[in-house]
Design a protein around this nucleic acid. Structure first.
Lengths: 252, 252
DNA sequence: GAAACTATCTTGTATATACAAGATAAACTT
DNA sequence: AAGTTTATCTTGTATATACAAGATAGTTTC
């Protein structure tokens, strides 16, 4: 069956019903929904601007902005005189998916164990708590955890958690690494960023990691948000001999 | 001396003289020039849209597009009802994008220069040439390049290139970093992977990078393919004080 | 048949206009 | 003096209109 343009637009017009978001953003959402649901496949052509104008009842400039921004974001590909097409999904680096070291270790078939060194509940800005230039004056948890792979220390986790969003963080079982699942449950991460550096560990950190003083470490600072609210920040420190980051891009 | 708005716009109007690029792009360029030259400092307020309209003789929507895109790119910060400000310069690299250090440095508004230390054409397996467990028995180029940001060494690039796919690699201008464009031209990368580690540089590498012997470095090993053929492998070494990896996921 | 032209589709840009909404300082009221 | 209103600045969005320019299919011309 050949899908006609009108059938392509079926639910598109319903999905931009009135909501607080601006129109161009709703148009973007509606298009993303079509793509993510699989209804609009990669390389497939999407309706032209004028068709969307007719179907959605908005002006062409509004549709144009939505399509242009999605093109900038790599979701669509446009060619003057030809049309607009769904871009192939970019497989971005596994770096963005290593949120949970326990899962990674399990995936390697090794045994994971976490050791809670310290956890405190305090009232401090996130900025004070971890050097990532963020301002929130909430009650926070500050935890230090050491992760083991087959009883060998592989990572120090210094985590700061927004206690307003995750009030029961300290009641989780740290040894079984329930903390990650708990955080995802109470405040599913919608946005995040990380900073990767090479650093020399302090003497105390060397002791925790059971490494020589001259071994460099990979440090990952990560911040994750849920709907514009900072949920948690983390500083992850791993000795280079036991931890590497691997990423893959392009291809299938 | 207080800088008046009119003096802020002095050369701005001259710099968008007619050229092939669209007007909004020329407005963006002119603003970037002001920022990169240091005339508009970080956190400083820039002229309002209506002021730019008057000064440049273009419509407000065109100025708005230029400012909006620069905001999306993290160059500017806008606040409704208040104004537009120069954002603090970000000194990190985007991890999700393909690495071309020259472009990244240019994007930061800094000057890039590359120095070719050595290039040889030889017959060896890629596996021998760089320790990444890859087998190809082709003729290869092996080059060592040092990249400078504002005359400060920021990265050592040890590159191995498949000479069958890129026969004229050694004829490119290394100082101008034509090599990246050349590789993309002869064998557009369709797939790649990278491995990130923290390492201690050798004495020779410290000398090339002009750093102390105890400074850890971020090492990125990268392999890129074009249609299942290995095009090039690279080992990129950057001192932690001058180079960080940055990644962003989720959100818009 | 081949080349040139044309109509018509597409996206890309530029403009004027309009109103909404956030922020701020001055003016006003109590 | 303290709070309220108002005027006015800012950015944010939505629209209609217009023309430019790339691509393509069909038509005409030679």
């Amino acid at each position: 069956m050949i899908e006609t343009t009108s059938s392509m637009m079926n639910k598109l017009s319903q999905s931009i019903e009135d909501s607080p978001a601006p129109i161009y953003a709703r148009v973007k959402q509606a298009i993303c929904l079509k793509i993510n649901s699989g209804e609009w496949q990669a390389n497939q052509r999407v309706p032209s601007e004028s068709e969307m104008v007719k179907a959605l009842g908005v002006s062409r400039m509004t549709v144009n902005r939505a399509l242009r921004e999605l093109t900038d974001e790599g979701i669509l590909i446009r060619q003057q005189g030809v049309g607009t097409f769904v871009a192939k999904k970019k497989t971005h680096s596994a770096l963005s998916e290593i949120h949970n070291i326990a899962d990674e270790i399990a995936q390697r078939g090794n045994q994971h164990r976490a050791e809670l060194i310290e956890i405190i509940r305090t009232n401090a800005s996130m900025e004070e708590a971890i050097n990532l230039s963020v301002r929130t004056n909430h009650t926070i948890f500050r935890a230090t955890i050491v992760h083991f792979e087959n009883e060998l220390p592989i990572q120090i986790e210094e985590r700061v958690v927004n206690a307003t969003l995750a009030p029961d963080y300290d009641k989780q079982d740290f040894q079984q690494n329930e903390t990650y699942d708990y955080l995802m449950k109470v405040a599913p991460m919608t946005e995040g960023e990380h900073l990767v550096e090479a650093v020399m560990p302090s003497a105390y950190e060397c002791k925790l990691l059971q490494i020589e003083a001259n071994e460099p470490c990979l440090q990952i600072k990560r911040r994750t948000w849920c709907d514009d609210q900072l949920v948690t920040t983390a500083r992850l420190l791993s000795p280079s001999s036991r931890f590497q980051l691997f990423g893959h891009f392009g291809g299938k």
